[in-house]
Amino acid sequence: MTLTYLKDVVTLSFSPSKCIGCGLCTMVCPHGVFAMKEKEVQIVNRDACMECGACALNCPAKAIEVDAGVGCAAAIITGWITGGEPSCDCAGPQKKSRCC
């Protein structure tokens, strides 16, 4: 059974004009968001994106942009409280984290 999360929320954007067709994004994406169609990359399952950032970091042509981060409620709450970025280090950067 495939689990899917909320629709139309992710910040993923792809510029086909910059794409050089190396296909690395189709390899690093753990959710099959990209696919090669006749030597061109296309987004085929946008809502499956979890914004991990693997594709954008590994795109040599910088054709992909995504606001990457951790999809973790506790991390986001910690970010709100401390006023910083949501971080996996639940206990703060100094202490050892309990999650992940």
Partner: peptide
């Protein structure tokens, strides 16, 4: 936070 498919935006 433990799941493998939730995005931060979501």
């Amino acid at each position: 936070g433990s799941s493998t498919y939730t995005s931060p935006s979501g």
